[in-house]
Amino acid sequence: MDMSMEPMADGVVRVVLRGRLDSPGVDSIETRLTASLVPRGESAIVDLSGVEFAGSMAIRMFITIAKALARKDRRLALYAPQPAVAETFEMVALDSIIPVAADAAGAVERVRA
């Protein structure tokens, strides 16, 4: 599982994930991702276009991070999921609790809403 991060304008950070967010994949990035995002206190958007699989462990990780950011009045949004990942998110109606956008611009709009 690969992860990279870059600051954007106006206090938003962009994270790019690549690989499989199955149990081993989540285990390999969760601590690093949480430690990179939560303490800095900025809203974050996550590019999922390179993620070919996401299971319930991935959803649990995103909900945990979103809750931690919300306590700092910041938001998390996901964007560009592949069709199979989008289907998984739809099964649990994830978009009703964490914004899932089609692209980066849409995700930035959702975290600033």
């Binding site: 319930s56 909900i63 945990t64 809750k67 919300a70 099964m91 649990v92 009703s96 609790i97």
Partner: peptide, 17 residues
């Protein structure tokens, strides 16, 4: 299914899927 982030459980979604 949770309607808000505050009310969202952490975990327990897998069997439902």
């Amino acid at each position: 299914p949770a309607k808000t982030l505050d009310g969202a459980p952490i975990g327990g979604l897998g069997v439902g899927m």
